[in-house]
Design a binder for these strands. Structure first.
Lengths: 210, 210
DNA sequence: CAGTCTATTGACTACTGGGTCAAAGTTTGT
DNA sequence: ACAAACTTTGACCCAGTAGTCAATAGACTG
């Protein structure tokens, strides 16, 4: 039928791609806002206003606030964790060096690119049941990256920890608050603060040689 | 006039004491609820219902939700921090032992007695400006207890830390999440988890001898 | 250009939650 | 017992917000 045999089997039409882009715009804005203020404090009118549309449009793409929130968390969390997973798979060196690189990248992402997204991973208790479960799942996958390197270092004798879970929890807790501490700092001071944080957290795995 | 000269100068009447007790009841309940669900998710009807009264009664004692929240935070925070300050002033031993005792007591209070009050000290960002400032102040005083012991150990050479502030922040962040981890555990497993947490956190001050 | 699918609007409903208040109920002191 | 002070109530107001929907504007296609 068409004069262009190429891209014949394209599963999505142009209009579908356009819709996809719109959905992404909405999700990015929603993640931003939910991250800034938390679930309760963000109304759909707020989201719509930042997108220069009205609330009704959001309901054209999502069945409700919960679903929008879940999708926003999903997108952001998947991107974040994916980058850490890729780093863990490529970075070379001792377990000590690898863990430090992960810590550094994690706080750098949190502070630099998703400064507002923090709250998505912190204390999800005010969120409705459904988003809360998704957040927990994303956190588990997130933790998994660090658990991998940690257990590697344990097996090789580079690390000595009292308990794997506890150590991971302490790391995660400290990292999750990093953006709050570094928020107001200038670039150089911020870099120093992030290095210091990574150094401090490295102590949690003790036996590692500096 | 009275046949009992004792207690003549009592500054408060019986009715005032009664009012004081009522206020304490309200504050305790409010702190409980705010701790469980956070500021936004708690309505004054919720608070009133748990007290078996109606919303109007709360407005007889407090001018508004903000003021109630601030007072509740104040009471709980002062009690908590006061106990840590007293412990810090009395416990004997090396800086290492003193710090560990404080860490242990802190998580024990958080997990055992104020299991719900956690959120008051965590991510105060969804709170209105006024309560938020009070929370920050209380956290500073809270930190001060640990800062004292930490600097003591630094001066005596028992501790070696990269940065005092960063170390305190990591400790605080990890401790703040402790109740979330230990929430579902039975008493013995919980004790073990708390010990493990304290041990792990002690690593942050490194040079300390085990 | 006409017709159809897509996207957006803005007015509407229903409900929740903070805050007010006059009236009723309860304590207290004399 | 009585009056005054204290406490509680429940109905009410109002703003904000999740969610609905018919009407409309815009884009794509024959």
């Amino acid at each position: 039928m068409s004069s262009q045999p190429v891209e014949v089997a394209a599963p999505v039409s142009r209009v579908q791609r356009k819709r996809g882009r719109r959905v992404q715009e909405i999700l990015a804005t929603a993640a931003e806002l939910f991250g800034e203020r938390g679930y309760d404090a963000v109304s759909l009118d707020d989201v719509a206003e930042r997108l220069d549309v009205t609330k009704g449009s959001l309901y054209y793409y999502f069945p409700g606030k919960d679903e929008l929130a879940v999708a926003a968390i999903e997108t952001l969390g998947a991107d974040w964790t994916g980058r850490l997973e890729r780093l863990a798979a490529t970075v070379e060196g001792s377990p000590h060096e690898r863990l430090r690189a992960l810590l550094r990248e994690h706080v750098a992402i949190a502070v630099g690119e998703y400064p507002a997204a923090l709250r998505l991973f912190l204390v999800p208790s005010t969120w409705p049941a459904d988003p809360r479960e998704r957040i927990k799942e994303l956190r588990r996958r997130h933790d998994q990256v660090f658990r991998g390197v940690l257990e590697e270092g344990l097996a090789s004798g580079d690390f000595a920890v009292t308990g794997v879970d506890t150590t991971l929890q302490c790391m995660h807790a400290a990292m999750a608050q990093a953006p709050l501490w570094c928020g107001g700092l200038e670039s150089e001071a911020r870099e120093r603060a992030l290095d210091e944080l990574a150094d401090t957290l490295m102590k949690l795995v003790a036996a590692a040689a500096q």
